[in-house]
């Protein structure tokens, strides 16, 4: 599903150059649920942004589902993002003047899907995250957990090959975090490939594999026994 080879990335900070990723290699198969861990500054978010085509690597290879991702112009990157990727952000990033259903249907709008069809689809995904009754509510009328579930529904609505979650529980209390992780596990159970960036051990152990990043290199890559979040949810 994902194959990256010798990925490098550095940021220019004035006259200094900050080398964030120093040669990353890894593969992820279809249906994996991978946690990327690391302290702040380890490069985990940068890696996720590159995988999400939100940012570009300086050098190295990135192949997504057999398609080499390189030399993308903005338009092509946008189309790939729309077709292949779903995003879940720490700060939810819902559009505040659109209600839950409209937020979920937005990726479908950019796929060129008709209004009626995409609203139906959006409602279906809202139902899956248990928020169908909240479809007409604006983000500021929802709780943090609900917002994140809307964001997950939005990420799933476009039926992406890969779901990328950047600290999806970072802004949530632990009960809500487990609810969100429960949802992510269920989506994974359905066969979707998911990458979760986190710095919380308990969240990472709810995945099937943990990759540890430190100072821009992978220091540990291990399969773990998945802890089911449902056990913590009443």
């Amino acid at each position: 599903m994902i194959e990256i080879k010798d990925l490098h990335k550095s940021y220019k900070m004035g006259s200094n150059s900050l080398h964030v990723l120093k040669g990353i290699n890894f593969k992820a198969e279809d249906g994996e649920l991978v946690a990327i861990m690391g302290s702040s500054g380890s490069g985990k978010s940068t890696l996720l942004n590159i995988l999400g085509m939100l940012d570009e690597a300086d050098s190295g290879e990135y192949v997504l589902d057999g398609i080499p991702i390189k030399n993308l112009n903005e338009t092509k990157a946008a189309k790939y993002r729309n077709k292949f990727l779903g995003f879940v952000f720490q700060s939810f990033n819902l559009i505040n003047y659109k209600n839950a259903m409209e937020n979920v249907s937005l990726p479908l709008y950019y796929q060129g899907m008709g209004r009626k069809e995409r609203n139906e689809k959006a409602l279906k995904y809202l139902e899956q995250v248990g928020l169908k009754p909240w479809a007409t509510h604006l983000p500021n009328e929802l709780s943090g957990g609900q917002k994140q579930r809307v964001a997950i529904a939005r990420a799933m609505a476009a039926e992406p090959k890969l779901l990328l979650a950047d600290e999806p529980t970072g802004a949530l209390d632990s009960t809500t975090s487990y609810e969100v992780m429960d949802l992510i596990q269920k989506i994974n159970d359905a066969g979707n490939t998911i990458l979760v960036v986190t710095h919380e051990e308990d969240i990472a152990h709810m995945c099937k594999r943990i990759i540890h990043l430190k100072d821009g290199v992978i220091v540990e890559d291990k399969k773990v026994k998945q802890v089911r979040a449902a056990d913590y949810v009443q």
């Binding site: 903005e74 338009t75 946008a78 189309k79 993002r81 077709k83 995003f87 937005l106 950019y110 796929q111």
Partner: peptide
């Protein structure tokens, strides 16, 4: 800016 960033992340092209 932020809204446009979200839209771009969701697949809006520069033309969009």
């Amino acid at each position: 800016t932020k809204e446009l960033g979200i839209r771009k992340a969701l697949g809006a092209t520069p033309g969009n």
